[in-house]
Design a protein around this nucleic acid. Structure first.
Lengths: 227, 227
DNA sequence: TAGATTGTTAATCGATTAACAATC
DNA sequence: TAGATTGTTAATCGATTAACAATC
């Protein structure tokens, strides 16, 4: 078993007495992540406070939704003033688990895998891409974007040795199930799945799907239905 | 103005008298797209019919949800028998607009853009990637995955000349707003946005966002909250 | 104090679930 | 006919909106 993400302070304890985690609605979770993104930008631009009204405008949601969402983190605002940006970001990160240091493996170093290895956004959010894996010997034992590409045979041993907890699955659709099974068996607790296919369920393993073709179809529906 | 997707029959007429489009819930739209994916697979495997129960199991939703979703397309099933796969796929595609032929431009031929150019999934769903654009002269006037990479200056003229209606935005975050504006002005009606940033709104232009770092954060939340 | 903005309530809206009559 | 499965209803659950008292 590998898995647990690590940090300076113990990962399961709650540093402050703030009401926590217990079932935040999925819609709220999705928005909180976007709030954090926008708040970081505001902070970079030198802002120290933000109101629910402004934050809502930046993301096209109502101010009431922002307040309600933020309240799931505990009471963070000051009436008449708004929210202090720094602590708010911190509280969102803690709730989302992004204050922890997650080690990530990438499976499949094809064109999509390649792009993901070079993608800076993961690093910026504190994710550590420690290794990539592929079946093609021609691309193994090379470094791409600073990340070593290893033969798929070394999947299990590397995950355990490096204490990898998350995996990005970017293999051809027909290989997805088998690889997911191996990941689950190795102790990975989360899979970001780019294969256009519903993976079987493994106990203790969360899956988030990203299907690029589906997204484009969502777009065409939005277009044809708007008129 | 470029834009309108084309097909044999006129795109706005409704070939059959089936109840149509008028406001299908977003949650249903997302699932219908996945149903179509799964149905195509079943058809490839030689199946001709499917029940709401089976389709639901394949996607981890209840049979009642499947029936309700499918009913938004009109009455497609036969009691005691189930749904005929072929017509059901056809009806979903028509409702989603994926029976039309959409021309797509890709803006940004960096690592992500590169991967998207090589990605086969778009083609398989009937999307036609006609050109990519980049500011870097070093990668322009080359073909990547069979798609010409052109200098960004030719964006507007190409969109109009080729009647491109959709765009995939894979440029650095700081360039996103400006490029989106040019896309909207050129008559593009939909943008699939990979830049981690909320784009300004342009009338008549739909946007679907894909933020890879956000997806990974969704995953960490799922992991930390499941225990 | 006066203006601004939160936290929270009650009302509305939308989506899911369970159940079952209709019917192939 | 008997078994299976749809289409649809009513009940429940969840999310959003509007409003406003609390309070900085």
């Amino acid at each position: 078993m590998a898995a647990e993400p690590t940090q300076g302070d113990s990962s399961q304890e709650l540093p402050s007495g703030i009401a926590i985690n217990s079932s935040i609605p999925p819609a709220t979770v999705a928005r909180l992540i976007l709030y954090a993104r926008e708040l970081s930008r505001l902070r970079r631009e030198g802002e120290s406070h933000v109101s629910s009204k402004l934050l809502g405008q930046l993301l096209s949601v109502s101010d009431a939704v922002v307040r309600r969402d933020v309240n799931h983190l505990g009471s963070m605002g000051q009436r008449g003033v708004g929210y202090e940006i720094g602590p708010l970001i911190g509280q969102i990160r803690q709730t989302m688990g992004t204050n922890l240091s997650w080690k990530v493996a990438l499976i499949g170093a094809g064109s999509l895998g390649n792009a993901l290895m070079r993608y800076r956004g993961f690093d910026e959010q504190g994710f550590q891409l420690v290794a990539a894996f592929d079946t093609d010997p021609a691309i193994c034992s090379r470094n791409i974007g600073g990340i070593p590409v290893l033969p798929l045979e070394q999947l299990e041993s590397t995950i355990v040795a490096e204490a990898v907890s998350l995996a990005i699955l970017a293999v051809p659709v027909d290989a997805a199930d088998a690889v997911a099974k191996r990941l689950a068996a190795s102790g990975v607790v989360g899979i970001l799945n780019f294969a256009p296919r519903t993976l079987p369920k493994f106990p203790g393993v969360c899956v988030v799907n990203v299907d690029l073709a589906s997204e484009l179809q969502q777009l065409t529906f939005a277009v044809v239905s708007q008129k």
